[in-house]
Nucleic acid binder design. Structure first.
Length: 646
RNA sequence: GCCAGUGUAGCUCAGGGGUAGAGCAACUGAUUCGUAAUCAGUAGGUCGCGGGUUCAAUUCCCGCCACUGGCUCCA
């Protein structure tokens, strides 16, 4: 184990640093978007958590002295430490580990910082003394690896708490007793340095706070987040389901969920029609040859479902040869390119905007699937805009404005625009080798963002192979980050497809292409909306918009309820009648539970006065109002897609 | 795909080597109630699937499938 570089290439830049504790101070969620920077200070809470990670390592070392520690940084909701250990740590072990941790915090040791020479640190690693209670027979192998990657001339520091010594740049709290409250939460696994070629380590997660009150508030918040989880609400509200026989990652949309889909499509179609898009429809499959042209084969083949093979058969029924292969489409662009190509194009046709809610299939790895947020079949709010270089900026800008318009409709404010650019060092490898076009398009995109006054982060080396892109990042209820919308420049693939238009000077030119999906895919967007609204959709989106609750079941009342339902439905309102024998309290309860947006209570008193008693989900009884007024309010709220209806 | 955990009625969950139980929902009947649970009755499960150990498996063991938490990856 003397090899200084026992592991694969270094992937995560933060991990290159002497201590993974050193992170840029900012919203932790943004960190992954930032390039590595010099050490920046941690917030007080992060110091507490990072210190708790050391105390966790101390406790584990006491119980399992052969533990090999890798990295132990603070994260958004707490901290973790990666450890290699023959014992498989399970939640059953947490009580024992926490007990050891408590001894350390009670002892109130000082976190003592020691600057050492590179040579001294290397010697200690060889003696197994880093991330350990003392000298061991084994080398502190991960610490040694981290150490050897610290750039020459940089200060090397150790932190000592009690008997435990760790390689770390800090910072920490003054004493172990400053960690007011902590709790281990779960155990997971992670590859060393995030590289699947490296060994898998056990990642022990915990959280820590200044005091117990704050920690309890944190756990209460988590409970609240779980209530918003789209998987839970999706089941309760009968929006979608999965079935083993259909297959993992292949959602079945129930009637209530389909309402959401169709309302979104209506919104998209209206918006795109107004913006001069043309709608197209394309098949879900295509021949192998198209994906060879597009370059998806072989580069994207891992993410595609295996092909359907058509075979010539011998007389005895055995396969003579594969005569054709069809693939399920993983994206719509090639089909759209073919539509562009189907007709001779002139510069007068540009910009040409082709839109389709196209269904794509991607063979995501099984462990990556997550409710609606990560699926294998998805309906994408896709469009491809073919334009000239001169038209590009205006087109890209218009797409961006479309995003913002949508976000306003949904009251979406907590998002991050991520501008992904290329890495000049990887031209011709990861990125199309055309430095001039890269610079030109990236400048244009950056210009659009600056001009729009939108906050964004720029991330190099994240672009698509065919051009720069903007992704819109949002966070799910349980804190996971997702791309909800995307706007990409493509200056490479149109040429591969031989796309051309006749320019003013009678020469053939290749168009630029913008791939855009402001509403992402139905699956992810709706998954996100469910959590965003906690299932309490505005009236225009609500699967059941109105439920009429007659008080009692006398003929007169029931007839009035049925007539009201018919009238509402004639205006396209999704209205139902609760004709059950339950009492009015029970009917109200059930309607509230199923998150019906508007409840219209109809009793004798209302009937006589020509009124309806309005109750809105979550807002309680709003009192009796004239029947005509109530209906008009409902219709205009839907029509205007009001955020807070009635 | 990898590591770990979980899988009992439509839902939420008890139970446990001697072949299962509650609440809610469903169904039937009664009730005629003004804004978060009217009452009674009925029905509902090859305890994820397959194999093994055992006189006996839903319970123990193995394999598979699905889901959950992560890692890797992404709309």
């Amino acid at each position: 184990m003397g090899d200084a570089r026992p592991f694969g290439s270094l992937i995560h830049p933060f991990l290159l640093h002497p201590s993974v504790c050193v992170l840029p101070a900012a919203n932790p969620s943004l960190r992954k978007h930032l390039p590595m920077k010099a050490p920046i200070q941690m917030s007080d809470l992060e110091r507490i958590r990072h210190s708790a990670a050391h105390v966790l390592a101390t406790a584990i070392s006491r119980i399992w002295p052969d533990a090999q520690f890798a990295a132990g940084p603070p994260v958004d909701t707490g901290f973790y430490y990666d450890v290699e250990l023959s014992h498989r740590i399970s939640p059953d072990d947490f009580a024992q580990i926490e007990e050891e941790m408590r001894k350390e915090t009670k002892a109130n040791y000082v976190f003592e910082r020691r600057v050492v020479s590179r040579q001294e640190a290397l010697l200690m690693a060889q003696q197994g003394r880093l991330g350990a209670l003392g000298e061991r027979e084994v080398v502190s192998k991960f610490k040694l690896d981290i150490l050897t990657n610290i750039p020459e001339g940089e200060e090397i520091s150790l932190y000592v708490n009690g008997e435990f010594t760790d390689l770390c740049a800090g910072p920490h709290v003054m004493r172990t007793g400053n960690i007011g409250a902590f709790k281990l939460t779960h155990v997971a696994s992670a590859y060393y340095k995030g590289d699947e070629r490296n060994p898998q380590l056990q990642r022990i997660y915990g959280t820590a706070f200044k005091n117990k009150t704050e920690m309890e508030a944190h756990f209460a918040m988590l409970e609240e987040a779980k209530r918003r989880d789209h998987r839970k609400l999706g089941k309760e509200m009968e929006l979608f389901t999965f079935d083993e026989d259909v297959g993992p990652g292949l959602p079945l949309w129930l009637p209530n969920g389909t309402v959401l889909i169709e309302e979104l499509e209506k919104l998209a179609k209206e918006t795109e029609f107004a913006a001069d898009y043309h709608r197209v429809r394309t098949p879900h499959i295509a021949r192998e040859n198209m994906y060879l042209t597009s370059g998806h084969l072989p580069y994207y083949v891992e993410s595609m479902f295996p092909p359907m093979e058509l075979a010539e058969k011998n007389a005895d029924g055995t396969v003579a040869e594969i005569s054709d292969r069809y693939y399920l489409k993983a994206m719509n662009c090639p089909h759209h390119h073919k539509i562009f190509k189907a007709v001779p194009r002139s510069y007068r046709d540009l910009p040409l905007r082709l839109a389709e809610y196209g269904t794509c299939y991607r063979y995501e790895q099984s462990g990556e699937l997550l409710g609606l947020m990560r699926v294998r079949s998805m309906q994408m709010n896709d469009a491809h805009i073919y334009c000239t270089t001169a038209q590009f900026e205006a087109e890209f800008m218009a797409v961006n404005e479309m995003y913002l318009k949508y976000f306003k409709v949904f009251g979406l404010t907590n998002y991050l625009m991520r501008f992904s650019t290329h890495d000049p060092a990887r031209l011709g490898e990861k990125f199309v080798d055309d430095p001039v076009l890269w610079k030109q398009t990236e400048d244009m995109v950056r210009g659009v963002l600056v001009k729009s006054g939108i906050n964004f982060v720029e991330v190099p080396n994240e672009a698509a192979f065919y051009g720069p892109k903007i992704d819109v990042q949002v966070w799910s209820a349980i804190g996971k980050e997702f791309t909800i919308a995307t706007n990409q420049v493509d200056f490479a693939v149109p040429a591969r497809f031989g796309l051309a238009y006749k320019d003013r000077d009678n020469t053939d030119k290749t168009p630029l292409c913008i791939h855009r999906a402001p509403l992402g895919t139905h699956e992810r967007f709706i998954g996100f909306l469910i959590e965003h609204y906690a299932g309490n959709f505005p009236l225009w989106l609500a699967p059941e918009q109105v439920r009429i609750l007659p008080i009692g079941d006398e003929d007169e009342l029931v007839e009035a309820a049925v007539a009201l339902r018919a009238e509402l439905r004639s205006h396209g309102v999704r209205a139902e009648v609760d004709a059950s024998s339950a009492k009015i309290n029970g009917k109200v309860l059930r309607a509230e539970e199923s998150k019906v947006h508007t409840m219209l209570v109809l009793g004798k008193r209302d009937l006589e006065g020509g009124n309806l008693s309005v109750r809105v989900h979550g807002k309680g009884n709003l009192g009796a109002k004239p029947r005509g007024e109530v209906i008009a309010d409902i219709l205009s709220s839907i029509q205007e897609r009001r955020a807070n209806a009635v």
